[in-house]
Every structure is written in C-alpha cells, then in structure tokens.
Simulated assay, not measured.
Amino acid sequence: MADATGLEALDTPCLLLDEARLRENVERMRARLAGLGVAFRPHLKTAKSRDVARLAMAAPEGPAIVSTLREAEYFCEAGLRDVIYGVGIAPDKLARVAAVRARGADLAVILDSLEQAEAVAAHAARTGDPLPVLIEVDADGHRSGVAPDDAETLVAIGRRLVAGAASLRGVLLHAGHSYALSDPEALADAAEAERVAAVSAAGILRAAGLPCPVVSVGSTPTARFARDLTGITEVRAGVFMFGDLFQAGVGAVEPEDIALSVLATVIGHQRKKGWIITDAGWMALSRDRGTARQAVDQGYGAVCDLAGRPYPDLIVADANQEHGIVALRRGSGAELPDLPIGARLRILPNHACATGAQHDRYHVLDDAGRVAKIWPRINGW
C-alpha cells in the first residue's frame, strides 16, 4: 500500500477487521469462562468466516454453534465436527442435517415442541442415525423455548426422542432479554436467572430418568456478567468477538474493543444542513437501528478517523441505499470536522452481525493499521 495506513488504496465501502482487537476479545472471554469452570462454545453466526473460527475455537474440530445450515456445511467442510445448529429445527431441513452428519460431523439440532420431536424421532428411526437433540428452554420469555418449570412438556419431548432412537443431549437456553438491559447488576441477575432456569430444566429431565449431559447457556451480555455458573456445562457467545455499538450500549463490550468497521469515502456535502455525504449507505452498514432504543442513539453508526478514533458526536444520522449522511448528533456542541471530498473515514457498526452480512470479505488490519490479509466470509441459509 502506498499510503501510511494502507487504507487509501481500497475500494469503498468495504469491511475492516482489527485482528489484534479480535484476538484480545476472544482471549478475554476464554479466560473469563475458564475462571468460572465452564467450556466455551463460540457462536460463529457473526463471523461466518473460517479464519475467524480458527481463532475462536479451542480446536479445528470445535466445539462451535451456528445459526444457519449454510454455516454448518461451510464450517464442517473445513473440519468442524462438534457443532450445534442453534435455530429450532424445521422437519424439511432434516435431510440437510443428515447430509452434514454423513460427512463426519456431529451436528446436533434444537427443538421446543412435541411436534418437532415427532419429526426428529421419525427421521432417526427411518435413517438409523441417532440424531442428537437439545431441548430449547425459555430463559426469560424473550423468544422460543419450553418453560423451565413445564415438566410435562420437557419430559414428553425427552421420552419421545429417546423412544424414537434419537439422542437426547441436553438443554439449551438463550437469555435474549439481556440485550434490553444496561445496568451491570441487572445483567448479572439475568445471567443468574438463565443459570437457574437451565439447571431446573436439566433437573426435571434427570429426575424422569432421561439423559441431560449438556446444559448450555449463552449470550454475550450474560457471558460477560455471570458471577456463578454452577450446574452449567458450556457457555455460548459470538458477537463479543467483534463488538458493536449496541453491545457497547448494553455494557457487554467497551467501545475501544470494537474490532469491526466499514471504510467509506466522502463523496459530497450539504453544508447548510451540516451534512457530509459518503458512499456507505444502508447497503454497506445495514438498516439496523438497535441503538435508537438505548440511552445513546448512534444513528446508523459512529464515525471515526482512519486510525479508528471516534470523532466527537459524529454519526451516520441517516442512510439511503448507497448514501450515508454524516452529521453531528442532535444537540451536540462539537464542531463538524473538515472532511473534503475523497477523504476516508471508518464507521463503527450498530450490529456486527447485520453489517457483516452486507459484505463477502474482511480486510484484516495488522498492528500498524495496514491491510495484511483478506479473509472471505459467507452469507445465506
């Protein structure tokens, strides 16, 4: 690269990844969970990259969790073996699950209804493959799952799976409500509620004579703030690896830990309106506006200089498909920076998963801020 940072030669908009920050985030989480005595199962749904997975996983074989069967196929082709498909199974997807398993991967699925259990049991009986299953338990009313005290449903699902020659591997919970919190004590309480729900559900299965070797919990906020994980066998988390403005608003990551950004170019001005126009609209940043519900609304992203230092109160205030409108946050007393046409800037994402999904590769930055590597990433289901 001809310039000092190596970023001026890139076509924009494009996705940048600070490798040092990524590694630090992963090591910090590993150390924290090791200190709490539990295994770490990284979620690869944010990364969608084999190169990132190699840094996140304990070994090339895993463990890991994914959110799409496309991810399962992609990572298992590269040697991943211990993996959970972490979205409730639809019966018509069992053939794809079976194809991944036939290639040597121990791919497990999750479910939360007797209807799904019937389909999985029938599949296992028909194919002779004892498909491993985790029962999804509802930690906090956020989304899917069996209530942790619904013994009748938990036992009925477990017995149907075992009777149908499937393998009941355990329970899985996701404390999604934690994303609506920001107080450290409230987040610690959410982590404890998740733990109690998981242990309760596991106890119900075991009391009925059913196996429950895995008790799996996870979200970035609860992984960050959990004080005690007694009775838990593994924790799942993924977005912490990259960090984003939403997680910073929750308090699960620090703003300086955010490893992902979008490189953009200034293409115009509306000086009377206090606007700087860039070539990174919502097609590059995503439409995610999750921070609008937080104490600090970051618009479509926070704007930084080429070294990754945020400009005071400068955000992408609005976005069209291919145009980003950069302006000072409403009510700010900061001064709009002088960014002429052709100037480069970096935008921190609201939601790393959504922003990453707009791109097919990471431009990986070394310690000097130069692009040292290109890491491909995938999308799709």
Score class of each variant (00 low, 15 high):
residue 9 A to N: 07
residue 17 L to V: 07
residue 17 L to D: 01
residue 18 D to K: 08
residue 21 R to C: 04
residue 23 R to I: 10
residue 24 E to S: 10
residue 28 R to T: 10
residue 35 G to S: 08
residue 36 L to V: 05
residue 37 G to H: 12
residue 40 F to H: 09
residue 43 H to D: 12
residue 45 K to T: 03
residue 46 T to D: 01
residue 47 A to E: 07
residue 47 A to C: 14
residue 54 R to I: 06
residue 57 M to S: 05
residue 60 P to V: 11
residue 64 A to T: 00
residue 67 S to K: 06
residue 67 S to H: 10
residue 68 T to E: 10
residue 71 E to N: 02
residue 80 L to P: 02
residue 83 V to P: 02
residue 83 V to E: 01
residue 85 Y to D: 06
residue 87 V to F: 03
residue 90 A to W: 12
residue 94 L to K: 01
residue 96 R to F: 00
residue 101 R to W: 03
residue 107 L to K: 02
residue 115 E to F: 12
residue 118 E to F: 05
residue 125 A to S: 15
residue 129 D to Q: 12
residue 129 D to P: 00
residue 130 P to E: 02
residue 130 P to T: 10
residue 131 L to V: 10
residue 133 V to A: 05
residue 137 V to P: 01
residue 149 D to Q: 13
residue 150 D to E: 15
residue 158 G to E: 12
residue 160 R to P: 06
residue 165 A to L: 14
residue 167 S to V: 09
residue 168 L to E: 00
residue 168 L to T: 03
residue 169 R to Y: 10
residue 173 L to Y: 08
residue 177 H to T: 15
residue 182 S to M: 08
residue 183 D to I: 15
residue 183 D to F: 15
residue 185 E to C: 13
residue 191 A to P: 04
residue 192 E to P: 06
residue 195 R to N: 12
residue 197 A to Q: 08
residue 198 A to N: 07
residue 198 A to D: 10
residue 199 V to D: 04
residue 205 L to M: 07
residue 208 A to D: 09
residue 208 A to N: 09
residue 210 L to I: 12
residue 213 P to K: 11
residue 214 V to W: 11
residue 214 V to C: 08
residue 216 S to D: 13
residue 216 S to I: 09
residue 217 V to P: 02
residue 217 V to Y: 03
residue 218 G to L: 08
residue 221 P to A: 10
residue 223 A to R: 00
residue 225 F to L: 12
residue 227 R to V: 11
residue 228 D to S: 14
residue 229 L to A: 07
residue 234 E to S: 14
residue 236 R to E: 09
residue 237 A to V: 03
residue 239 V to P: 12
residue 242 F to A: 04
residue 243 G to V: 05
residue 243 G to S: 04
residue 246 F to W: 13
residue 256 E to D: 15
residue 257 D to K: 02
residue 261 S to G: 06
residue 263 L to Y: 01
residue 267 I to D: 01
residue 272 K to Q: 12
residue 276 I to S: 01
residue 276 I to L: 04
residue 277 I to H: 08
residue 278 T to W: 09
residue 278 T to I: 14
residue 284 A to F: 06
residue 286 S to C: 05
residue 287 R to G: 03
residue 294 Q to V: 00
residue 294 Q to W: 03
residue 296 V to M: 07
residue 297 D to P: 06
residue 298 Q to Y: 14
residue 301 G to I: 06
residue 303 V to Q: 05
residue 303 V to G: 00
residue 304 C to Y: 06
residue 308 G to V: 08
residue 310 P to Y: 07
residue 310 P to C: 12
residue 310 P to W: 04
residue 311 Y to I: 11
residue 312 P to C: 14
residue 316 V to L: 02
residue 320 N to V: 07
residue 322 E to T: 15
residue 322 E to N: 15
residue 333 G to L: 09
residue 334 A to I: 11
residue 337 P to R: 03
residue 338 D to F: 13
residue 339 L to C: 14
residue 339 L to E: 08
residue 342 G to Q: 14
residue 346 R to I: 08
residue 350 N to R: 08
residue 355 T to C: 11
residue 369 G to K: 06
residue 372 A to V: 08
residue 381 W to S: 14
